[in-house]
């Protein structure tokens, strides 16, 4: 079944394109520090050098004479890091809540789902802003804030899956054989709920990257790391004279997010053709 899924994924043209783009971004993030060992904050030339006008500075310089290409390369690391880690943290919050609600039902289910609904109702972006403004805007809190606003769909999805899996015969057999609740949830139920969770997680990485860039754009990112959103935010004031400074990082975000979405859809078609997008 996994092999079938792999074949279906490989045949999907969109997913293949997405994978190529993502591999390129990952490679940039890994090799970047080797190619650009200097800090992306360092002034290298006079400011506002347009792209393709000087050797060694393919994308020109920004308003403070910093190398745009270096910023882009270092930004790739931050986007991927924040996207991945915040998704993992969101899974760590959402999966247990959804699993407990779905497995136990009744009062626990009610309470946990009201809690989830609450977090789904409040405007998540505004919440992330308030959280980051009150606590210090560091990479740690950026990741935490994104995770806090993005776990509810996970909880809802996992709850639904657990609810439908827990009445299966093999789960009942495990109960009768005297396995503990925790063991049944983690060993019997969750592995079978994995495919839709993987799909949702890949789409969440895309959303997290968008969120991170929006927060940095507003100046709520970690002030010590170069990120794509920050680059656009600082270039905004000089948009009329140097439009490419805001244009280029935006394309980088667009391509990365598009790649993640394409991969997510490919995984969706490959792993569980029956899952609709209702859970999102």
């Amino acid at each position: 079944m996994m092999l079938d899924g792999f074949k279906r994924f490989a045949r999907n043209r969109g997913a293949a394109i997405g994978l190529v783009i993502l591999l390129f971004v990952i490679l940039t993030a890994i090799l970047g520090p080797l190619l650009y060992p200097d800090s992306p904050w360092k002034m290298v030339q006079r400011p506002f050098l347009p792209p393709f006008t000087m050797d060694g500075l393919p994308l020109g310089t920004d308003a403070l004479g910093r190398d745009v290409m270096a910023g882009l390369v270092h930004g790739a690391r931050i986007s991927l890091l924040v996207g991945l880690v915040s998704t993992v943290v969101a899974l760590l919050i959402g999966v247990p809540i959804g699993a407990l609600a779905g497995y136990f039902g009744g009062f626990i289910d009610d309470a946990l789902m009201r809690f989830t609904e609450f977090f789904q109702t409040i405007p998540s972006f505004a919440l992330a802003i308030v959280l980051l403004a009150i606590f210090q805007p560091s990479l740690f809190y950026v990741i935490l804030a994104i995770a806090i606003v993005s776990w509810p769909p996970v909880a809802r999805l996992v709850r639904g899956e657990v609810l439908s899996l827990r009445s299966r015969e093999y789960v009942e057999a495990a109960m009768l054989s005297g396995q503990g609740t925790l063991q049944i949830i983690t060993r019997q139920i969750l592995p079978n709920a994995l495919p839709p969770i993987i799909v949702l997680a890949s789409l969440m990485v895309a959303t997290a990257i968008l969120l991170e860039s929006s927060l940095s754009f507003l100046g709520l990112g970690d002030p010590n790391v170069m990120s794509w959103g920050y680059m656009i935010g600082t270039a905004r004031t000089v948009m009329r004279t140097a439009w490419w400074l805001s244009f280029i990082p935006g394309v980088a975000i667009l391509l990365t997010v598009l790649a993640m979405n394409l991969i997510g859809e490919g995984l969706n078609d490959a792993l569980n053709p029956r899952l609709s997008r209702k859970s999102r």
Binding site: L210, G229, M239, G250, I253, L258, L262
Partner: peptide
């Protein structure tokens, strides 16, 4: 698919 992947603030700019 394209609109879905575009950062809102960037489109606005």
């Amino acid at each position: 698919l394209l609109f879905y992947a575009t950062p809102l603030f960037w489109v606005a700019l």
